[in-house]
Amino acid sequence: MPSPRFAFGRSEDAAYADTMRATLSEFIATALFVFAAEGSILSLGKLYTDTSTPGGLVVVAIAHALALSVAVAVAFNISGGHVNPAVTLGALVGGRVSLVRAIFYWVAQLLGAVVAALLLRVATGGMRPLGFSVASGVSVWNALLLEIVMTFGLVYTVYATAIDPKRGHLGTIAPLAIGFIVGANILAGGPFDGAAMNPARVFGPALVSGRWTSHWVYWVGPFIGAALAGLTYEFLVIPEETTPARTHQPLAPEDY
């Protein structure tokens, strides 16, 4: 069983140019993703009175899949393309990123989501982002379990295609694979709780719109699912001999 070191990092990491570049990359990539993803929902609301249709669900799933694929791709070589606090947590518990760098990523991701939601509200003439909420007739515990399972699948996919040292050429399709699993999960869980899998994706629109119903579900669920996926893949799947300890060193794609 591999034993990667949990790296706290050093306070000096904050002054490293590569840390600042990676943080900025996470900010921009998350903003791009949230703007396109939430914007697709607002666009449907502009075009149709009722967006809760099978066709609307497919459109939203495709928009999220494409937007996330691009966001991961444009940040991958700089920050690892997390674009999601849950993914960063999964990498943290697996020893693939230091705590100091993870904190910088979390701040950047949340700020990027807020800026994207604000830009959307201004650009659409004051339309409030819809954000996420648990559907009528669905309990918060059902939604919590959904978020755990869906985020587990997302972070497991991230590990398999972007982190695993033996991924080989599979790494070239990592952004597409990550986007596809999110799109598929939206088709599976969207009608129940929106299928967030990303606390930043939920936080930005919630802050701008003031809609906080069952907001805790979209933090607790993804974080539990991400931690389980990171620990499972890191300790049970990745071969011990190919898992060096991770430190505060700059992220390369293999240090995603």
Rank of each mutant, 00 (worst) to 15 (best):
F152T: 11
A252S: 13
F76M: 15
R128L: 08
R21H: 03
I173C: 04
F192T: 03
H215L: 12
V149E: 05
L119H: 10
A177K: 01
A196R: 04
S40K: 02
S43E: 14
A37M: 05
L145I: 15
L187Q: 10
L120M: 00
P222A: 02
F180M: 15
P253Q: 04
L68T: 07
V60N: 08
G112L: 07
I163E: 04
T23Y: 01
P239H: 15
L89F: 11
A174F: 02
T157E: 11
P239R: 14
Y156R: 04
Y105F: 13
V182E: 14
T232Y: 08
N185G: 05
V83D: 08
A252M: 02
F27Y: 15
G131T: 10
A123I: 05
A17T: 06
G81L: 00
A36Q: 00
T88P: 06
F33S: 05
S139F: 00
V87W: 01
T51C: 01
V72A: 07
A31D: 01
V107A: 15
A7W: 06
Q249W: 10
I224F: 06
D164P: 00
P54S: 09
R246N: 10
A37S: 15
R121D: 01
E12T: 15
V59A: 08
I78T: 14
R5P: 02
T161E: 01
P253I: 11
G221Y: 07
V59I: 12
E241L: 07
A229Q: 03
A174Y: 02
L176M: 10
I78N: 05
G131V: 12
R101W: 01
P205T: 12
V208Q: 00
N84V: 00
S25K: 07
H64K: 11
G55C: 03
T151L: 07
A226T: 06
L176W: 13
G189H: 03
A36C: 12
I103K: 00
S98L: 10
T88C: 00
A67E: 03
A102D: 03
F6A: 05
V97C: 09
L110S: 09
L207T: 02
E38V: 08
S3D: 12
G95H: 08
T247W: 07
A73H: 11
L118I: 14
P205I: 10
W141E: 12
R121K: 14
W212L: 13
H215M: 08
Y48H: 13
L24G: 09
G9T: 13
A229H: 08
P199T: 01
A196H: 04
L187C: 00
E240T: 12
S79G: 01
T23M: 15
H82K: 13
G125S: 02
A29N: 12
A22Q: 07
A37R: 02
Y233E: 04
W216R: 12
A135D: 03
P165M: 14
E240L: 10
T19P: 03
P129W: 01
V237Y: 11
V93Q: 11
A188E: 02
I178G: 07
D18C: 07
G153P: 09
G9K: 04
L99I: 05
E38M: 14
G9N: 04
P250W: 06
G204F: 00
F76A: 14
S209V: 10
P244S: 13
L32E: 03
K46F: 08
V70E: 06
R211T: 14
A196P: 02
G45W: 03
M1H: 15
T49K: 03
F27H: 05
